[in-house]
Amino acid sequence: MKKGKKITTKILGIATIPTVTFIIMIILCAVNGVKLFETTGNWIAFFRAVTSVMLTTFALSINLNSGRFDFSIGSISLLSSIISSTICIKAGLTTPFMLSVSLISGIVLGALSGLVYVLIKLPPIIVSLGIALFYEGLSFAITNGYGVSFVANAELISFPSVAHYLEVIIIALCVIIILFDYTRFGYNYRALLSGQKVSVNMGIKEIPNAIGCYAIAGGLMGIVGFISATNTGNIQMALNFGSIGVMFTAFLPMFIGGFIGRFCNERIGYVLGAVTTALISLMYARLDVDSSVQQIVTALILVGFLIYLNNENKLKVLLIGKRGLHK
């Protein structure tokens, strides 16, 4: 009986937020005489948003959970996509090559970022800001400021499809779960999360682990860069921290994922957090919501969710008290 209740609580905890969001979005669209998913393009836009937000959330959370605020992930995404697209355009390579080169470039750039952090030993915020500027500048220098355009390259812009995005979601989720839950690296990572000093005293090497975290985050952002580039067929330059905005797309899904993670694997929580935000994004697009209104609504949802998380216990007491009164 108790087990059944536990399973019900888990299912409710996992499914409530995305399901309720989905229902609200459907209702909002229906009220305005629009279908949330009407065309293939809507499905592609939805899955693209889920994929890129999920990967960004993974990348951000890996270091943020360890107390390392990484502002450079957006610039890694930018630079790795520039490297991969430039190579593939010049060599006439296909989309899988571009994805692979993006991934490898991201891993290298991420590892470099981590290496700088452990060598310089400055606070990660400062190091990551410097790295962001450096990678933005490098991107600018490589392309002479013009960015990269392959809008007429039918092969490279053929990637966007529901099936491709689903493949990326499933593979990335499995790899991340295996890496962080079933490998020595993952055990060390979690041990360092729970107590760095004790873990180090026990013989866990925190420096390789930190560099590994940066490398994995970089690899994920390399894929984000690839997804973003193949969506439009061009890569626009960003200077003066213009690439930082990417990381802010991951905060809401990270908080939602953190909440859902109480009932299942945290990474699955992040995926559902990404699904939730992608549903909201699609609703904005379908209802042609003004960007200023979008920002206000997103900020209200974020703040509301944080208020709930911070006052969860008080709310529980309040609810139990009310139930008691009813009895």
Binding site: T39, G41, N42, I44, A45, F46, R48, A49, S52, V53, N231, T232, Q236, T249, A278, S281, L282, Y284, A285, R286, D288, V289, S291, Q294
Partner: peptide, 18 residues
């Protein structure tokens, strides 16, 4: 309109073009 460059904006662009 605008240059939001976020998921919602790209979705709008895509659905307009199609």
């Amino acid at each position: 309109g605008g240059y939001d460059m976020d998921d919602a904006w790209f979705a709008k662009c895509g659905q307009m073009a199609q």
